[in-house]
Design a protein around this nucleic acid. Structure first.
Length: 394
DNA sequence: CAAGCGTGGGA
DNA sequence: TTCCCAAGCTT
């Protein structure tokens, strides 16, 4: 955990009174914001050490049966943790089973064509996860004899594995006592400590890792990490009021003691999404549809997409764009049909789309390829962003 | 540090 | 409908 750097607990001046603060003190800044003083690192350690036995007992009693908990081998834990990044358990389950069946181990994953891995990931989102997964598998074949390395630092050096995932794999699969700080952990602890600092700040994550490293049970680090996360997901929930009466941390939770559960966690507001207008083309020809591969970097990297053009184009403008001879332009204009509008929301951008189907006798040349529709369905990874226009075909 | 990177489910 | 977001990582 050498990446964990020391950070002072945020306080105002007057370190002398810091040690004896019991009540939260608020003050007004010049800007008029309310600043809440935080409890000290020492106080946090005391609270955690007090509740850990209760929490571990709670987890032994109530841990859910999840597919990746059946056999906690490093490879399986790794796959599950990557899939679970920013993704709900229910969404992951079917993908996890299918992925492990198709790629049972590091070797199978390393040797597969990238498009096959992306196809298996199709619909799960954040596709760089799948590409990094395979890059890491190849590195494991080259450098670690086809196994995942059994140290936090080596895990973290693999593509797609950051602090959280390295901690999760190391603690769950290898029983290495390192924390795994995710959004659940930050939310739970922000409430337990009544911490009003923005949990999206990297410095808070680093401070939390350092704190948990000092209290994590040496004999059950994986269960400890999973226990806090499970509390966050089932009790100390993000949406709605936490179910404190069931919580093994309730006895020492400052937010609950103060009746201020709804004040935490504090998160910075999200940035507004930009909007993009697109004209989507469903080009059909003799049982084939046109698709093209997206660039290797950026949004939906490496995935296939329907041809599209920026902006909302009229049918005449579409025909012009296709740069056809006069004869085939007539065919296009007579066969083109409007498929309706659709919207797809990504995390940082919205696509507002209008789709047109164009069925021709001969393929329309362009920066796309016509692929037989069954093959498209079987082999080509296409993101859900286009589902409004592909579902009818497939 | 901030921004880019998917998707589907629930309030 | 609209908004929130969920077991993060990379650049």
């Amino acid at each position: 955990m050498e990446q964990v750097k020391t950070e002072q607990t945020a306080t105002r001046q007057g370190a002398g009174e810091q040690a004896i603060i019991k009540q939260t003190v608020t003050e007004q800044t010049a800007a008029g914001q309310t600043v809440t003083e935080q409890i000290t690192a020492e106080q946090r350690i005391v609270i955690l050490q007090d509740v850990i036995p209760t929490m571990m007992e709670w987890y032994r009693r109530t841990a859910r049966d999840l597919p990746w908990r059946e056999r906690p081998e490093a490879y399986r834990v790794w796959i599950s943790e990557i899939m679970l990044q920013q993704t709900r358990i229910e969404a992951v389950k079917p993908y996890y089973d299918r992925f492990l069946k198709q790629f049972p181990g590091v070797r199978e994953l390393a040797e597969a064509p990238e498009e096959q891995v992306l196809k298996c990931w199709e619909g799960l989102g954040y596709y760089s996860r799948a590409r990094n997964l395979q890059k890491a598998a190849i590195l494991c074949m080259e450098n670690y004899g086809g196994e995942l390395p059994a140290s936090y630092e080596e895990l973290k050096a693999l593509p797609g594995i950051g602090n959280y995932t390295a901690g999760a794999v190391a603690s769950i699969a290898y029983r290495i006592p390192v924390p795994a700080v995710d959004g659940n952990v930050l939310r739970v602890l922000s409430r337990v400590f009544a911490d009003s600092r923005d949990i999206s700040r990297q410095s808070i994550k680093t401070e939390t890792e350092k704190l948990l490293l000092s209290v994590i049970p040496q004999d059950a680090p994986g269960a400890f990490n999973e226990a806090i996360m499970e509390i966050g997901e089932t009790i100390c929930i993000p949406n709605g009021f936490p179910l404190c009466e069931q919580c093994p941390l309730a006895a020492r939770c400052l937010a609950r003691e103060r009746g201020e559960q709804e004040l935490y966690p504090v998160k910075a507001p999200k940035k507004e999404r930009r909007k993009e207008e697109k004209t989507i083309l469903v080009l059909l020809c003799q049982g084939m549809a046109a698709v093209r591969k997206r660039p290797a970097k950026g949004l939906l990297a490496g995935m296939y997409e329907l041809p599209w053009m920026s902006g909302y184009l009229s049918q005449e403008e579409i025909a012009d764009c296709l740069q056809l001879s006069n004869a085939s332009a007539g065919e296009v204009l007579s066969s083109i049909s409007y498929m309706g509008a659709a919207k797809h929301i990504f995390s940082h951008v919205e696509w507002h789309m209008k789709g047109y189907m164009i069925q021709t006798e001969a393929p329309i040349p362009g920066d796309w390829e016509y692929v037989p529709i069954p093959e498209l369905k079987e082999k080509y990874p296409i993101p859900n962003a286009f589902s409004a226009y592909t579902e009818g075909l497939l």
